[in-house]
């Protein structure tokens, strides 16, 4: 749980970087997303026995022999999302918060149709686009190639990509680096470029996974403006972030996900207040434990 390892609730972003004006958009009555009783299970290869402490010492022979018998340990099913239901309307911007490993990113991917649900259903209007900071396009290729590939993957025509090319480069602020392979980029440059590419198409549903935790204040301001554009075009925006300041400044509604389940769904202020209380309590509990061990 990363949230309890630091002294600040909003350790990624200084609150004063973000202006306090609430994001505005016209929320229509039309639904853009409907999620019903969603369950997601992952297959994970190479998983070791789960338990506390290191595995019991075994001789090489024992290890070899037990490998066949316990082969089910090699593949594990992880139940990441366990029965989540909610709906969203056009023009809404929704934050998803929760501690690490609570299933936020998985939920987002399932909504985008990138991970098939094990149970339940997801109904979406139009084509959702997921924007994650981890989504490497192709590291061996130049930024210019990646802009083309990313744009085409998002469903733009080659002409549209060419028209928006300069915008993307300017938005990402990568300048001359656009002609170098992406693997030579700094992590911030890569993330900015990915955001710029994803934002070059105006999707019906834009999902942002931790993307705004990077970049300087200027870039975040531009990102916020971009998100507002999407919302004005009657799109829905989802934002996963550990930073409550980001969530509060960008979203009016917040979902709190805990251990794969939805524990709270409501106005940003209220949910964030409860979540902050929980994080503070967690931190106190961790401190108390550390004190007790001393």
């Amino acid at each position: 749980m990363a949230a309890i390892e630091t002294d600040e609730d909003d350790f990624e972003i200084d609150a004063e970087d973000l202006d306090d004006s609430p994001v505005t958009g016209s929320v229509s009555e039309q639904l853009s997303l409907l999620v019903n009783d969603l369950h997601i299970t992952y297959r994970v290869f190479g998983a070791k026995k789960v338990g506390h402490g290191p595995a019991k010492e075994q001789s090489a022979l024992q290890k070899f022999l037990s490998r066949g018998a316990s082969s089910q340990q090699g593949v594990r099913e992880v139940h990441a999302v366990r029965g989540i239901s909610f709906s969203a309307r056009h023009g809404e911007s929704i934050g998803i918060i929760g501690v690490n490993g609570s299933g936020k990113s998985t939920l987002l991917r399932a909504i985008a149709g990138l991970i098939p649900p094990a149970q339940g259903s997801v109904y979406v209007a139009g084509d959702p686009a997921l924007l994650g900071v981890n989504a490497v396009l192709m590291g061996d290729l130049t930024g210019e190639r990646n802009i083309m590939i990313g744009g085409l993957a998002l469903g733009l025509t080659p002409q549209q990509v060419k028209d928006r090319y300069q915008d993307v480069v300017d938005f990402a602020e990568i300048g001359e680096f656009v002609n170098l392979p992406m693997k030579s980029y700094s992590s911030g440059m890569g993330q900015r470029l990915r955001f710029a590419i994803s934002a070059s198409a105006v999707p019906d549903i834009l999902m942002i996974d931790e993307a705004l935790s990077t970049g300087d204040a200027g870039f975040r301001a531009k990102s916020k403006a971009r998100i507002n554009e999407v919302r004005e075009a009657a799109g829905t925006v989802f934002l996963v972030s550990h930073s409550l300041a980001t969530v509060k400044s960008m979203c009016e509604r917040v979902l709190w996900v805990h251990q794969g389940q939805l524990v709270m769904d409501g106005p940003a202020e209220e949910v964030c207040k409860h979540y902050r209380r929980f994080v503070v309590a967690s931190r106190e509990a961790a401190k108390a434990k550390a004190d007790a061990e001393k």
Binding site: Q30, L31, S32, L33, L34, N36, D37, G83, S85, F86, S87, A110, I111, A112, G113, I115, P116, P117, S121, V122, Y123, V124, A125, P128, H258, Q261, L262, V263, M264, D265
Partner: peptide, 24 residues
């Protein structure tokens, strides 16, 4: 956790009336 699931029939009806497509 919020014990909330929608009625499947209502979900299908709402999805149709709002022009939603099923993902996955």
């Amino acid at each position: 956790p919020l014990e909330r699931t929608y009625d499947p029939a209502w979900v299908e009806e709402t999805a149709r009336s709002n022009g939603l497509e099923r993902m996955g």
